[in-house]
Design a binder for these strands. Structure first.
Length: 648
RNA sequence: CGGGGUGUGGCUCAGCCUGGUAGAGCGCUUCGUUCGGGACGAAGAGGCCGUAGGUUCACAUCCUAUCACCCCGACCA
């Protein structure tokens, strides 16, 4: 079946997918007039991936583009990104950072300076080799003018920034350098998903340089805290802060920290990363400075990033079978006013009343200005506050009220005001909130910014608590590997804690239904006989999560809190090894310790059909396994800073 | 890169096996009746069937190649 982002009329039972934690129920108590609703959105139970795409489409967030793996971020989706930028940027500034911009193109030789960089990025770099085009003689075009040194399109900017910092830094007085860049980057991904993993994506990458390791470490953690703050207090996404195990952190970093969020399908999603790069990059690019005690030393650098992937996380955390749900702090449209009328005389009176209500929220001046700007447009958009967020009045004549209700609901608008003749007669309004779902008649006089702010704050709070409750209900703790395996067999969704002591409150979930997840037991089959939830995507829950036991169905991730981490690297290494040991291979064989048999490069080598080389390249995996802190001092392969790769 | 699937009006698809004038529903436009959770009637517009070759009197349909997208794997953290 050809997948599409287009409208997909679907009628299906609206069944709750997940065990509804308190407050999660989103069906209103009163029966709906029609059994059909959100007919253009596949329920989560039926096909989680399709649901995700349907929500994006119904909300007008993004489209596929003519270029494979790339997307068009539509105005409504981009506005969410702008909201995120606003919140993040304010926090970056508040922590002393400034913005700058570095080139999109990077000399290929820069990448080669870091052996690990080459290994980590060579496969996924877009390379510019020509300077122009010429007719190919067949009516088309062909590249012309090969350039001397190929340029790569930045997959991340450590190299070019390292080169630049080397010129900026001479004395300890030049430090620290605290720079952030808002940019796009390109990684030639094999498989893509809207927002979660696209070949080109938008992000910010912070790059700092410091006098000491301690300072760099503090910076790394500070920015992780900023990310967690934004995730939880802006996006209402509860996150775990964690330190990556040796195999997971990239080799160029002394340490990699991440925030991880749980999606509604129970899988974790890496939502942001922060790296303490040590002196690896400063040595590669010779970023030296004269110290306070008259010596010469290499600086200590960090990098940290989050990307438009956060929008994917946002969608998968809060949205429901009725469409997008947005936390008010990033919702581009905060409220939609929908007038209801029949006759023309009714229409005039209702519209006048609707505008009065609008003015009560945003001010008469703002309404007048917006009318001048909007011109003949059928949707009047008025700014609310100074964030660029808006309140809209839906004046479209062609649509009936219910159509408008669905329209705004699916776009994640937190509050809707329905204004009809009855309300006019009573000087009241029907106030509908998306979360929690409620419909209340409110007196017109009560419609004030204070009332509105309160409603938005309530929604914001509820979204976070709901997500937190969901995560708690889906989480198990275990103290040793055996318990870990048992838990994972019993419960398909599990986050956190294997092999001991991470993340406190271990008893939190003990005794909760250890049984299976509805997803697991109620799982049906589609007409091709596939299990709807068996095809995990790669965008989330895949590489970030590690598979233990059975592939795909059971995933778990190790997280250790950065701030009270008691585990040693050895612990983490054991986890890595354990996971690797148990990870089934695609060919069905059990992995062995034979270096020639263990390796991520397997597929690549099969492509080349060269079994000899396989052994060589596979050995790398073994090295990875054994690599610990000792290896960090030396440049290893693979690494790259914002390991935020799948962006986070 | 390997395996599987799908390309037909804006969307979802039928038609293909068994070659013979391009179809349906939804959406869109206009008019009327409607309007508090996705209305109804009437009249319209809109497609060289992904692309390129081939077979044939004739191809959406058969053959070959190619491109794109989706799923699985691999790569990637």
């Amino acid at each position: 079946m050809r997948p599409s982002l287009g409208k997909t009329p679907r009628i299906g039972p609206h069944v709750h997918l997940f065990p509804p934690p308190p407050g999660w129920e989103h069906r209103p108590p009163q029966p709906r007039r029609s059994a059909r609703m959100a007919t253009n959105i596949t329920p989560r139970t039926k096909d989680y991936n399709q649901w995700y795409l349907d929500v994006i489409n119904a909300a007008g967030m993004a489209d596929y583009s003519p270029v494979r793996g790339c997307m068009v971020i539509k105005p409504h989706g981009y506005a969410v990104w702008e909201g995120l930028q606003r919140e993040l940027d304010a926090r970056f500034k508040a922590t002393g950072h400034v913005n700058a911009y570095f080139p999109l193109f990077i000399p290929m030789s820069f990448l080669a300076k870091e052996a690990k960089h080459v290994e980590g990025f060579a496969m996924e770099c877009a390379v510019v080799t020509h300077s122009g085009l010429e007719p190919d003689g067949k009516g088309g075009l062909k590249p012309k003018g090969e350039i001397e040194e190929p340029l790569i399109v930045r997959p991340t900017s450590e190299t070019i920034i390292g080169h630049t910092y080397a010129q900026w830094v001479q004395s300890w007085r030049d430090l620290p350098i605290l720079v952030n860049q808002w940019a796009n980057v390109v990684r030639w991904e094999m498989r893509t998903r809207l927002f979660l993993r696209t070949m080109e994506f938008l992000w910010q990458e912070g790059h700092t340089a410091h006098e000491t390791w301690d300072e760099a470490e503090a910076e790394t953690r500070r920015m992780l805290d900023v990310y967690a703050d934004v995730a939880e207090n802006v996006l209402a996404i509860p996150v775990h802060r964690g330190r990556k195990s040796p195999a997971e952190r990239f080799a160029g970093a002394d340490d990699t920290y991440c925030i991880e969020a749980m999606m509604q399908d129970g899988k974790a999603l890496q939502a942001g990363t922060s790296h303490n790069l040590g002196q690896n990059f400063s040595k590669a690019f010779d970023i030296k400075f004269q110290t306070r005690d008259q010596k010469v030393a290499h600086v200590w650098t960090t990098s940290w990033g989050v990307s438009t992937r956060l929008i994917g996380a946002l969608i998968m955390t809060h949205s429901d079978d009725d469409g997008l749900v947005l936390p008010p702090k990033v919702a581009p449209v905060l409220a939609a006013i929908v007038p209801i009328y029949r006759k023309d005389d009714e229409k005039a009176a209702v519209l006048a009343y609707a505008k009065e209500l609008l003015a009560r929220l945003v001010g008469a001046d703002a309404v007048a200005r917006a009318e001048a700007v909007c011109g003949g447009r059928e949707i009047l958009e008025v700014p609310y506050g100074s964030t660029g967020q808006r309140v809209v009045l839906d004046l479209r004549d062609g649509l009936r009220p219910p159509d408008k209700f669905f329209h705004w609901e699916q776009r994640g608008v937190p509050v809707r005001l329905e204004v009809g003749p009855k309300d006019l007669a009573n000087r009241a309004v029907m106030a509908v909130t998306r979360t929690p779902r409620s419909k209340n008649v409110v007196s017109a006089d009560a419609i004030t910014p204070a009332w509105f702010d309160d409603a938005l704050a309530t929604a914001q709070k509820m979204l976070f608590e709901r997500a937190l409750a969901f995560r708690a209900a889906q989480t198990r703790s275990c103290d040793d590997y055996a318990a870990f395996k048992t838990a994972i067999e019993e419960k398909p969704r599990l986050l956190r804690d294997a092999l001991g002591r991470h993340e406190g409150n271990r008893s939190e979930n003990q005794g909760r239904n250890q049984g299976h997840h509805p997803l697991h037991s109620a799982r049906g089959r589609d007409r091709r006989g596939r299990r709807p939830h068996s095809h995990e995507d790669s965008g989330h829950g895949s590489r970030v999560r590690q598979t233990l036991g059975r592939p795909r169905d059971f995933r778990a991730r190790l997280l250790s809190p950065p701030n009270d981490s008691t585990e040693t690297d050895d612990d983490l290494r054991r986890c890595d090894a354990a996971r690797r040991r148990d990870r089934p291979r695609s060919d069905g064989r059990r992995p062995t310790r034979d270096p020639s048999r263990v390796g991520p490069a397997q597929a690549r080598l099969q492509v080349h059909g060269d079994p000899v080389r396989r052994q060589v390249v596979s050995r790398q995996r073994d090295e990875d396994r054994l690599a610990g802190r000792l290896a960090r001092a030396m440049p290893r392969r693979r690494s790259h800073p914002p390991r935020c790769r799948r962006m986070g």
